[in-house]
Simulated scan of single mutants.
Amino acid sequence: MSKEFEEVKSDVAEGKEPSTTVRELLRWFGARRRRTGVVKRIRNELDDAGIVTTPDFTKVWIDAEISFSKIPEAAAPAAVPAEDQGQEEPQFSPQDASFLISMLKAANCGVIAVNPQDTVEKAITLMLAHDFSQLAVMSNEHTLKGAISWKTIGKRLSHNNELTEVKDAIEPAVAIEDTEPLFKATRLIIDHEFVFVRSSADKKVTGIVTATDLSEQFQFLSEPFLLIGQIENQIRVLLHGKFEVEALKEICNDADEARKDSIQSVADLTFGEYLRLIQKPENWEKLGLSIDRSVFCAEMDQVREIRNDVMHFDPDGIDEGQYDQLRRFSRLMDELDALAQ
């Protein structure tokens, strides 16, 4: 257990409410992302210490600040009946898979705002200075009056309307709470080009998510899938026609006879089975590669671990080092394919 978490437990026991970021909390547990096993471990430690995070560390942006406090007595876990003790607890809830709008950086970066009585020139200057297409129109940090944008300014001018104050070019704005699932919010963002995000705790406007932010997020989420799909195809090409069906079945789980019987080609294997196949020296020889087997398999095993993160839809995605690993291994596969021709 990290000394930082020990200090948190000590502070909470004294009635204090220390704080940190989600990223820092993960670091205390030797992790960088909120993978299922990591989340379970942290939750267990928090429960054992009688501590809760506010907000829930799984439901916010990875760099959001969270505080630690004692679990309210009314929310403390009930005693487990004797007849139920020893039974395994549920490991997954559908809510665990929710990717919330609050997990996006843009939803947490605040907003540049003008009030309705500000001049249009001020709004234009702010949009130019920050390279924004729109601004929030607010009377205070809780009261969202609407938005002003290049589009609304252009529309008013095209109708020969005089523009003096921001209120002359205001348009209604859509605001959603930070607990809204991202995929439900997607349609609103597409339809309106942007939405403002409110904190469900205090109703403050915490950020604005635009269609551009959305497209960047989906690229961030989809690129690893595309890279992994490309690598899997490259591996199938490398292995195709090199092995008898019996050799492929041999590396499958002996306990799953039905699946072993269904294996007919390399395409029927899992990524882990590709790795087990070529880890055997006698199988590696059949590939005819003049490279080191142990190094190649170690690189491929790293890809396998990244693939597991991606396929389990880790809300924090993968880091740049993992991207580099996928790109590097894909380039290696391309080079091996070129040498074989």
Rank of each mutant, 00 (worst) to 15 (best):
residue 1 M to T: 03
residue 5 F to A: 02
residue 10 S to P: 04
residue 15 G to A: 14
residue 15 G to M: 11
residue 16 K to W: 03
residue 16 K to I: 00
residue 16 K to S: 10
residue 17 E to S: 11
residue 22 V to I: 02
residue 24 E to C: 02
residue 25 L to T: 02
residue 27 R to A: 04
residue 31 A to Q: 01
residue 33 R to G: 04
residue 44 N to P: 02
residue 51 I to H: 01
residue 70 K to F: 00
residue 72 P to W: 00
residue 73 E to A: 01
residue 73 E to P: 00
residue 74 A to P: 01
residue 74 A to E: 06
residue 86 G to A: 06
residue 89 E to F: 08
residue 93 S to Q: 07
residue 95 Q to E: 15
residue 96 D to A: 08
residue 98 S to H: 10
residue 99 F to R: 13
residue 100 L to T: 15
residue 108 N to Y: 05
residue 111 V to I: 11
residue 113 A to T: 09
residue 117 Q to V: 09
residue 121 E to M: 09
residue 127 M to I: 09
residue 127 M to T: 05
residue 130 H to V: 04
residue 133 S to P: 00
residue 135 L to D: 06
residue 142 H to I: 09
residue 143 T to I: 11
residue 144 L to F: 12
residue 149 S to W: 03
residue 151 K to V: 10
residue 152 T to Q: 00
residue 157 L to G: 09
residue 160 N to R: 15
residue 166 V to C: 07
residue 167 K to H: 00
residue 170 I to Y: 05
residue 174 V to M: 08
residue 177 E to D: 08
residue 183 F to C: 07
residue 184 K to Y: 05
residue 186 T to Q: 14
residue 187 R to P: 01
residue 193 E to C: 06
residue 194 F to G: 03
residue 197 V to W: 04
residue 201 A to N: 10
residue 201 A to W: 09
residue 203 K to H: 13
residue 203 K to A: 15
residue 204 K to C: 05
residue 205 V to H: 07
residue 212 T to N: 08
residue 215 S to A: 12
residue 227 L to R: 14
residue 229 G to N: 15
residue 231 I to F: 06
residue 232 E to M: 08
residue 234 Q to H: 08
residue 236 R to G: 07
residue 242 K to S: 10
residue 244 E to Y: 13
residue 246 E to K: 13
residue 248 L to K: 14
residue 248 L to C: 10
residue 248 L to N: 13
residue 252 C to A: 10
residue 257 E to W: 13
residue 257 E to Y: 11
residue 258 A to S: 12
residue 264 Q to V: 14
residue 269 L to P: 07
residue 269 L to Q: 06
residue 273 E to R: 07
residue 278 I to L: 03
residue 278 I to H: 01
residue 279 Q to Y: 02
residue 280 K to N: 07
residue 285 E to C: 03
residue 285 E to V: 10
residue 286 K to G: 05
residue 286 K to N: 10
residue 294 S to R: 07
residue 298 A to H: 00
residue 302 Q to P: 02
residue 302 Q to Y: 05
residue 303 V to N: 01
residue 306 I to T: 06
residue 308 N to D: 09
residue 308 N to S: 06
residue 309 D to I: 12
residue 313 F to K: 13
residue 313 F to A: 15
residue 315 P to Y: 07
residue 318 I to H: 07
residue 318 I to G: 08
residue 321 G to H: 03
residue 325 Q to L: 07
residue 327 R to H: 06
residue 327 R to M: 08
residue 330 S to D: 12
residue 337 D to T: 03
residue 337 D to L: 00
residue 338 A to H: 00
